[in-house]
């Protein structure tokens, strides 16, 4: 039997109180693009939905000193319409433009996409490459700051406790980096990623710093830290990039599923990585 209740808190404090009160049954809900299908198919049978979609603490895209701060209830469409994101975080804007379709983008939120913990989460990849931090809060634990790269634990699992809500996501825009985002699905629109990848490179005479984030290629969206380390200080040479792509493949652990086999995902990662780096190098 499906037993789902719906609560609409007046402010953040009440939302946190509800979450604490209903503990394991509590589910924060905003765009509901994952929660409603889960209720519909019976994956989620017993819950109290706490609607946080218009709490003011969780909305808005702001510039704060060196950081850009996003409310967790910011929709993907709002990202696309934001001049700040378009001009200062083009890698996030690009990912938003490839996210599902306009109808879903109007509802789906950045915080929801992260909190759901899907290995194929399309918002996590650009935010990982930007080395974002998530600000979370609960009655029990107060406010915590968690680097996004420590946020995901396993498929559908994050470090969030059931009563903890994501307040905001913040990151430095890194204007001295050049970025590239690419996503590969069964088709170009409205498709779940078979593989997605974002690369950021700070280029001097050699590669000063590299960041690589990957989606749908491991149990969690992840940063390829060993590949990044390998690339740091290296010149841009074909052999170096080939070697880097080998290290990259050893860092991921894709599965075979209805969207693609493990072997294909490995092959694809190499191609997408090389495509990303070549694109970045050709950007001036």
């Amino acid at each position: 039997m499906i037993n789902c209740e719906y609560l609409k808190p007046v402010d953040l404090q009440e939302a946190l109180k509800f979450a604490s009160q209903f503990a394991d049954r509590a589910r924060f809900a905003a765009g509901c693009t994952n929660i409603l299908p889960d209720i519909h198919t019976g994956k989620l049978r017993d819950c109290v939905l706490i609607d946080i979609s218009d709490l003011k603490e969780l909305t808005g895209i702001n510039r704060e000193d060196d950081f850009i701060s996003l409310g967790s209830a910011t929709t993907v469409a709002e990202l696309l319409n934001s001049e700040i994101i378009r001009n200062e975080a083009p890698v996030l804007w690009e990912a938003a433009s490839r996210f599902a379709d306009p109808v879903v983008r109007n509802r789906a939120t950045v915080g929801g996409n992260l909190a759901y913990g899907s290995p194929a989460s399309d918002m996590s990849v650009p935010l990982l490459v930007l080395d974002a931090t998530v600000l979370v809060q609960s009655m029990e634990k107060g406010i915590r700051e968690i680097p996004l790269r420590n946020f995901f634990v396993g498929p559908g699992k994050t470090v969030l406790s059931p009563s903890e809500v994501i307040l905001r996501i913040k990151f430095e825009p890194l204007s001295d980096f050049k970025f590239y985002y690419t996503k590969f699905g069964k088709r170009n629109a409205m498709a779940i990623s078979i593989a997605s990848l974002a690369v950021g490179i700070k280029l001097g005479k050699a590669i000063e710093e590299a960041r690589i984030a990957l989606g749908a290629l491991a149990p969690i969206p992840l940063r390829a830290l060993r590949t990044e380390e390998f690339l740091t200080g290296k010149p841009v040479q074909t052999e170096i990039l080939e070697k880097a792509s080998e290290i990259l493949l050893s860092e991921i652990n894709p599965i075979s599923d209805i969207r693609g086999s493990k072997e294909y995902r490995l092959e694809l990662t190499r191609a997408l990585f090389l495509r990303a780096v070549n694109n970045i190098l050709s950007l001036k």
Binding site: A189, A191, I192
Partner: peptide, 11 residues
Amino acid sequence: ITDNKIFTTEE
């Protein structure tokens, strides 16, 4: 329809 894809204008 999540995993049964027909062409869109994008293709």
